[in-house]
Design a protein around this nucleic acid. Structure first.
Lengths: 120, 120
DNA sequence: TATGATACTATCAAAAAGGTAAGTAATGAC
DNA sequence: GTCATTACTTACCTTTTTGATAGTATCATA
């Protein structure tokens, strides 16, 4: 998750697919390794950087930052900085972010069924 | 998409997240670059390898094979080989595969809204 | 005998994603 | 003056995913 090379075949392919396939487009936005997890925690209300980190003890600060930036850029969350020391920054889902709730619920149900199916 | 290193931190992190978060688990299964697209085409009925390829002209045969194998391993699709020459292989969604229909629909709706929102 | 169709495999290289570790800025508490 | 706190940033490295290209098997047809 650094800069992407806008000349790669990979980049072209992604763009083409997302252009003609809204579900691929959507999954590209919420599809990062930690993205959905972050949204899950935020769906219960805003959280600070450090609180999110505590929710996901294995994420590195770098990754958390990158994911949050990406989510912010995609208008899934808002970022509010309070001019205090030490700094306080709060993250909250936007309207369209909260609308992921349904999808998250569906994924959860489907995931449960699927996991059950794969058990034996 | 070849063999994974089961000792990497990355692998550990994924496993942990998927263990405690069913939506992350689910998104891991349908989250590949071409996975959802394949499912979308299959949702209208079974297709042959070559037909899928025609649906997605930019996918390489290697990638298509890899994705189909992964989907098969995860019991999202079935693979039927007919003993003919030249060979004929058909892919079809399983029951749990077809149940992705709801999620795909939701993703589509959300994607449309989101795309609209990002326009200006 | 050569060609074509189909559904793959096998290598190798490139790109993207993720991890490690160290450093920064501001300020209040000690 | 040193330390702790918080939310990062930076540089570098490893792992994972994806792409490019060429090759395989089988038989029917030309």
């Amino acid at each position: 998750m650094t800069k992407i090379k806008e000349t790669s075949t990979n980049f072209e392919n992604k763009k083409l697919l997302e252009d003609e396939c809204l579900e691929v487009y959507a999954s590209g936005i919420i599809g990062g390794q930690w993205t959905l997890a972050i949204c899950c925690y935020l769906i219960n209300g805003k959280l600070r950087f450090g609180e999110l980190k505590k929710c996901m003890p294995t994420i590195t600060e770098r990754m958390l930052t990158l994911q949050l930036r990406k989510l912010e850029k995609n208008k899934i969350i808002t970022r509010t900085v309070y001019a205090e020391v030490p700094p306080r920054v709060e993250y909250e889902l936007t309207a369209i972010g909260y609308q992921l709730g349904t999808i998250i619920g569906e994924l959860e149900d489907w995931g449960r069924k699927h996991k059950e199916l794969m058990k034996p």
